[in-house]
Each structure stands twice: as structure tokens, then as C-alpha cells.
Design a protein around this nucleic acid. Structure first.
Lengths: 229, 229
DNA sequence: TCAAAAGTGTTCATCTTACACCCATGG
DNA sequence: CCATGGGTGTAAGATGAACACTTTTGA
């Protein structure tokens, strides 16, 4: 069955930049294409938006299909519509970015035949289409947003140490932070709760585990509180 | 002539939230629809994206066609794709926002039959489609962005007084600012240049006219300078 | 001479920054 | 006992907030 319109229409896709953090580096999840165009090249997970499907749903569906990731932080990034961005025809892509803790979402075998892998951000292969531009846009957004919204926690397990949190900020912002000042500031917000637990199986003094108080943050935000750093 | 595809495709539009500032209030430019659906209702200027046309070009073309505005500040806002947002069929809209100085872009008679008018932001009529949501998103973006990027100047004439600038910030941010502190801070950036001219035809002491030093700002930005306020 | 906005500095409080040592744990 | 990261306070400097009067101009 075919579908006919009075005027030509661009096709519509979603693409997802999935960031993962893992005790060391910030990574991005890529998929090796098995179809033309760019067969064999690495690309962002994504695909065509179905009719009567919301954009965010399309992004979540494609993520689940291609990477197995579900119920993760996902936010719209930007829409890319340069006429030549796909060699086949005019395809407009609405890009999203997602944040996951690699500790809680272990490197996935894709559910279908396609190969998925995490790449260190400073060691990514050539990407298909304009996906390098989309990735660069996502990195800029992450760097900008992490300073004034508490999205960094999405990259950590639900319980984390202050050392992990500081390390995450250092990697994302690409700058060293002073340990005492960082702790003072972050604890000063009152948004971290000491769980009473401590790290297990570490070869040094075990650190306290904290969690982010989302409830409290939402209350403060209503009163005009804005983040920090 | 018709166009046929294997799978159904959503239609693609652009919509523009045009903010104007005018010695007093922040306004938005709306157009009264003369076609169904929502005939007679006010809506954001916009229309269908042509095939092989970039999204930004489509937005600029529609703006020129419907409002006569050209060469203005324009930036992508967000994409709206809820399946029910248009009663006819699934139409995805990429929204943009634009900033103009009303002093330099006088209220336009639309070039075609449609009526265009500037509405005070706290006195807008019911809007067609999901345009209220788009407008609310644009206002939030403007408020957020004005604090850390010098986009406020796009809403003023190229030469402006510090009083006008302060007033603009007060209106956009919805808070009163201290005159002396505001001047100290804004002049302290070194990004305003005294043109040597002064206001004409005002019924009180004439103020100096400044302009924003875009060149200097771009240089500072490269060195990691970020805005303020 | 009145009204309306322009222009101008100082003080106090707050926040930011720089900085070094001991502690607990496992290997 | 050593290596590794955890945990802690203070002082100096920078930044932000509060605050009132004189000047200029046209009506």
C-alpha cells in the first residue's frame, strides 16, 4: 500500500545521542549500520518516525529497539533539516540526547543484528550522515546544561560518592575542581542525602553513598531556586 | 501532480514566535488565520516547509511572506510533534523564535491579505493549534537565555540608552534592577561603546547612546568568557 | 519651577578561591 | 607499610546588594 500527497514531503526521523558515564570517561553509544547508505559506518541510534507517533515516543521506541535502553533520561536536542544531509532524499531529523549510568545499564547487545558499542568521547569513529554535527551539538548542550540543572546525576548510579560526582563534573566540564570547595558547595545546596551506606569492595577508605533529593529540588525550583557551578 | 511514498508521512511546518520590544512592553507578532482550521483565530506566523528547503530558510521565507520581516535574529526553539496538535492530520512543526526592535521594524501590514498585529505578552488572545504552548516555550527560552547571552540587544535599536537596556531586562526578567548596580555591571564588561551621541527630542535630560560591541564579544567568547546577570 | 529621567560611589555582606594534612582501608 | 582516595577548615580576595542625591532638559 502506498500513500499519496499533493505536495512532496520530507521524511522524518529521530536520532539519539546516548551519553554513558563509567567511573572514568564519558562515552557515547553508537550503532554500526548494516544498510545503505553508509553501510558499515557507525551512526547514532535512530530511525523513522511512525505516523501518529509523538517525537519523544519515536525516540524511545528506536532506543529500545536498537539498544535495549528503556526508562532513561531523554530530552529533545535540536532538529536538523539541511536538504543534503541524507544522500537519498530530504530527511529531517529531530535529535534527542539521553543520559545513563553505565553501572546500571551495562553495555548492551543490540536486540537485533546491529552491533552497538560505547565509544570514548575523544575517540569516536567517523560517523554517517551529519551525525558528527549532532554529536557536537549534544556535547555542547550537555556541558552547558550541567552547570545550571542537576542532570549530572542521571549519569551516575542512584547512590554515588562525592568523589564520583566530582569526577563526573570534571570530565564533562573539562576542568579540575577543588575537592573541598566542590563538597562545600554541593552539600550546601541540601540536595544530597546521606544514605548511611558506604562503598563496598574498594581498595582504600570506603566513601559515603549519597542520593540526589529530586523531591526537594522540585520544591526549591518552584521558588525560583536555580542550580549552580 | 501528486507524490507517493511507501509509508505515510507527517507534514512538516515551521512556526515563528517573533518578539518585539518598544519602549515599554514586550510584544509578540500574531497573524489572524483566514483558512480552516481555526479560521479567524490568531496564530503564530508559519507554514509548510518546502521540499529541499532547510528549516531555517523555511522560517525566514514564511516570516518575509507573512510579516515582511527580513534579516532579523532567528534561532531554532523546539520541535512539536504531538499527533493531535493539528486536527487535519499529523503535522510536525519546528518552532523558531525571532527578536526585533519595534523602533526599527514598525508594525507591519502583512504583504498578503492576512492581518498581522503585535500583542502585549500579558494580553494575548486564544491561539490556534498548540501555539500557546509554543509561545510559553519561547518566553521561557528568552528569559533563560537573556541571562547568559547578549541577545537582549537584538530587541533594541542599534544605538540605545542604558535606561532602555535596563528597562528591557526588567521587562524580560520580570524583576526590578538597581540602576547603579546595573550600570556598573554592564559597563564593566567593556562590551558597550559610547557612540558620543545623545538622545534627541526627549522631555528630560538626554541620555548617552551606546552600541553593543559584537566584535569584542566574539573575541571574549572564544576565550571562555560567558555573559552575566 | 516642575516633572522626568540621567548620572554617580561607598559600605557591608556574601560568595569564591586557594590551600595541606590526617584518616581508613586493602593489598 | 604503602598506595589510594576520603574527609575536613580558614583566611584573603572578589563579587553582589543596598542605598540617595544632584544634574539636565523641555514643557
Amino acid at each position: 500500500m502506498t500513500h499519496t500527497y499533493q505536495y512532496p514531503r520530507a521524511a522524518l526521523t529521530v536520532d539519539c545521542v546516548v551519553f554513558g558515564f563509567d567511573e572514568g570517561d564519558l562515552k557515547v553509544l553508537l550503532i554500526q549500520r548494516d544498510l545503505e547508505p553508509f553501510s558499515g559506518k557507525w551512526a547514532l541510534p535512530g530511525g523513522f518516525v511512525h505516523i501518529k507517533e509523538s517525537l519523544e515516543n519515536a525516540a524511545r521506541r528506536e532506543l529500545a529497539e536498537e539498544t535495549g535502553l528503556k526508562n532513561i533520561f531523554l530530552e529533545q536536542l535540536y532538529s536538523f533539516g539541511a536538504p543534503e544531509r541524507d544522500p537519498r532524499e530530504h530527511i529531517v531529523s529531530v535529535a534527542y540526547y539521553a543520559l545513563v549510568s553505565l553501572a546500571e545499564h551495562r553495555p548492551q547487545a543490540a536486540t537485533d543484528a546491529r552491533q552497538a558499542a560505547w565509544f570514548n568521547l575523544d575517540d569516536t569513529p567517523d560517523l554517517a550522515f551529519d551525525h558528527e554535527e549532532i554529536l557536537a551539538t549534544a556535547i555542547a548542550r550537555l556541558r552547558g546544561k550541567v552547570r545550571y540543572e542537576p542532570i549530572g546525576f542521571e549519569l551516575l548510579p542512584s547512590r554515588f560518592t562525592l568523589g564520583q560526582l566530582q569526577h563526573l563534573y570534571q570530565v564533562v566540564l573539562e576542568e579540575k575542581l577543588d575537592k573541598r570547595n566542590f563538597r562545600k558547595k554541593i552539600l550546601g545546596t541540601g540536595l544530597l542525602v546521606d544514605t548511611g551506606e558506604i562503598q563496598q569492595d574498594v581498595a582504600h577508605r570506603a566513601a559515603r553513598l549519597y542520593r540526589f533529593d529530586e523531591r526537594k529540588y522540585q520544591q526549591l525550583r518552584k521558588r525560583g531556586f536555580s542550580f549552580w557551578l
